[in-house]
């Protein structure tokens, strides 16, 4: 339950943070949330990962579907990916990775106290 709530909180605050700060502020949000929620390292990683991944997936889809995949198809080409869905997947994985690492670090620091 705590993990689930932290995922939602991460997604919300990441969205907020990204409107005011650089994209990597997502790592700091994940760090703070797992720190405050005292999550264990494994759970902290996945909370960060899914929090950001869900957020990035949602925003990508909100942009990609009305765009009829024009942009994602071309960007996929630049990255030598066979289709736009893989480009979305790469976006989500990169976001998730950064979120996960931020969360992991947050829980590791928490352990010091």
């Amino acid at each position: 339950m705590r993990s689930f709530i932290s995922i939602l909180i991460i997604a919300f605050f990441c969205l907020l943070a990204e409107y005011y700060f650089s994209w990597w502020s997502i790592a700091i949000v994940c760090f703070l949330v797992t720190f405050l929620f005292k999550l264990k390292p494994g759970k902290a990683f996945w909370a960060g990962f899914w929090g950001v991944a869900i957020l990035w997936l949602t925003i990508s889809l909100f942009k990609d579907i009305p765009n009829h995949h024009i942009l994602s198809q071309r960007m996929a080409g630049l990255f030598h990916l066979p289709g736009y869905s893989l480009f979305i997947l790469v976006t989500v994985l990169i976001g998730g990775l950064i979120g996960g690492l931020g969360g992991w670090s947050g829980s590791a620091v928490r352990k010091l106290f």
């Binding site: 969205l15 990204e18 925003i59 942009l71 960007m75 976001g95």
Partner: peptide
């Protein structure tokens, strides 16, 4: 790739 401020804003 950041969907908030990155390339996705051009979609």
């Amino acid at each position: 790739l950041d969907p908030v401020n990155g390339c996705w804003t051009s979609a």
